[in-house]
Nucleic acid binder design. Structure first.
Lengths: 213, 213, 213, 213
DNA sequence: AATGAATGAGTGTTCATTCAT
DNA sequence: AATGAATGAACACTCATTCAT
């Protein structure tokens, strides 16, 4: 084996280790996100989270320096993934009102099918640390802006102009979306896609009406 | 002082005591409801609640047999008060669609002005006990039925008929209402009454549209 | 039983409770002081301390809000008791050099017979909290000043004049005193009183020599 | 490259490795000694110690089989270095009382200038293991004997004769020396050399007086 | 009715140590 | 030789709850 090959192997090994570590961190974040979402921040302990990956509680400190840090990692990861999907729709370049409808539909699908922990994490959880609460608000704000900006371009408003008439319609939409997991039943009459279509239409209708008047 | 008088006084005293007890219980429920709503179930302790009435933690056990019992009392009391106000509107006997609009408006005023703890208590709190979670759902269900029944009579549906087209519109309304405290600011541009009016109109519009089609 | 008697009893009861509490606190402080002195701050746990009074660890939180608080109470109590004894000697009004000798002797007796935990607590313990370390230094400073002031009056120096030639002699004395428990053996050749007498003479000799030269 | 040369190189490499290992051990001992002296045995972790040499905590196990072993190595090394310097003075062959004065002076210089960790390590640290505490006492004893033997020869006493009158004077000296770091300030009025001179004179004075009487 | 005392169960966190790589 | 991973034991601290007074 040549020196070069040896170094290469070391490199591969290192990256394998790093990849394994990153993967474990990601797994832990997902598992933890789900558990936090289901049982609340205080009711979930490191022991519980670790158990799902055959780890004892204290072992998690190899990956996260505290419970709060772990929680922050969870919400940041979730926020990023969701934001990516929404941005992808914005950049598809459809007509603004059509983009808005697509955003609503995508958000429904995200909440009900792909990231069931999203709503609990960002809209239902109480976390003792006010710092974290502020981070949550900040991430929510960022996500809300995706919708707002689309509304702005649908109404031809500059980025710094305040939404006034559209404000309530937007908040109604956010509320309706955040409330989805409260009543959706996987085995109910309405499928996720049907709900997405109906909700999209219903929520966009408010803005169409606003534009007419 | 005669024997009779003494007994009478004792009676009066007793009833005074009982009244005082009932009043203290009610005060505790209100105080606790507000604290639970603000900080979450697990973050509020008996010592904290008691302190607001100059009592030490363990003294609360004279009024509630456990923290869960206290919490149940809180949500039952809150649910009853809110239900009373909504029922009063139903019984005013206005035309159904008009009643629906009034219900939405009243609900806004309840949430934003009169019972700020209502939404957190019923829609945001996580409680470890699944029994309590089910009680919360049951109380929410009862309150939802007030709206549903009004919708039923607006559409001429029998009590046991299932709402289908109206389902989503109702849930959108519930979501929008539950989301109100997330964005309402007392010092913002919109007053409670303005929000109530706008929300009422906006939410009722969905049903009018449904009736037309 | 008359109202007056009842009130009196309540008073007595209350004061009894308070006295009991104060006594328990004092006991705990003494016990803890001894244990801290013997085993160090970090090696002593609440469980250990409590066990000596048939209490479980967490029960101590009824008396001290944290381990550090308990430790502070220990050193403050010890410092006060020792300071009282030294002050009593100063106020006996003997001739300064004689007072100094008496102070040295008293300090020996305090360290070896009455408060064996004094030296470890103030001169040997490491405590993680820098706040506490500063408190220790401050209490040590206060105790050192009792000796310094006596030296000052022996040499006719004003309170704000700096000791120069006497500085080293004083520190030699402090060192010798702090080192006592390292070599004193209760069953050794020298009794506490003999050591006190010899040390007093030996340490005072330095100052007499200084005064002559 | 010939086979022989390769072997030779391996040899050199090995011995280089061994030298490197020994050097690393020595570095670790010094670093650890300083950290233990500053922060106490329990407050210093392998991770902390390793970090100063760009090693992770567990790597130290290649050099020391446990934390206690490392600590033992620290104090043995320190004791040896100090003992060497004191022995050198004894073997200079000066007149005993003069040797004693020189020992005191050397000890001052050791403590204040060359091995600031010496006093904390041997006189202030609490270590949970009683075995180690005994080792510390033993090393202290050995160092004390250097002084004792000099006193013996100054008074013409046989090695096995017990010191009686000189006992207290010696312990005063040890105490004064151990107390030095508590009050010495590098930027104070007295330089290390001045303190050494004054302390030497002052401590030796006790013995001269003893010899006269 | 009120409370001080006490506690048991539980939680987040630290750290020396082991082991596979 | 070095380390990342993992862990068991320990510990400070919290809190709902019980009980005697």
């Amino acid at each position: 084996m040549t020196e070069g090959a040896r170094e290469l192997m070391t490199d591969i090994q290192l990256s394998r280790q790093q990849r394994k570590r990153a993967e474990k961190i990601s797994q832990l974040e997902h598992v933890a996100a789900r558990m936090f979402a289901e049982r609340g921040f205080e009711a979930v302990g490191f022991e519980d989270i670790g158990a799902t990956l055959d780890l004892r509680g204290p072992s998690l400190y190899h990956y996260f320096s505290s419970k709060e840090e772990l929680f922050l990692a969870c919400i940041r990861q979730s926020a990023k993934e969701v934001a990516n999907r929404l941005h992808a729709i914005c950049e598809a370049g459809a007509e603004p009102m059509e983009t808005l409808r697509a955003l609503f539909e995508e958000q429904v699908i995200i909440e009900l099918r792909d990231y069931p922990e999203y709503v609990p994490l960002f809209f239902k959880l109480y976390v003792p640390s006010s710092e974290i609460r502020m981070e949550i608000l900040s991430l929510r704000r960022a996500q809300a802006e995706i919708f707002e900006n689309t509304v702005r371009s649908a109404f031809g408003l500059a980025p710094h102009q305040r939404l006034i008439h559209q404000r309530v319609a937007l908040e109604v939409a956010f509320g309706a979306l955040a409330y989805l997991p409260e009543w959706y039943r996987p085995d109910g009459e309405l499928s996720v896609d049907e709900i997405a279509k109906t909700m999209g239409e219903s929520l966009v209708a408010q803005f169409i009406k606003l534009r007419c008047s």
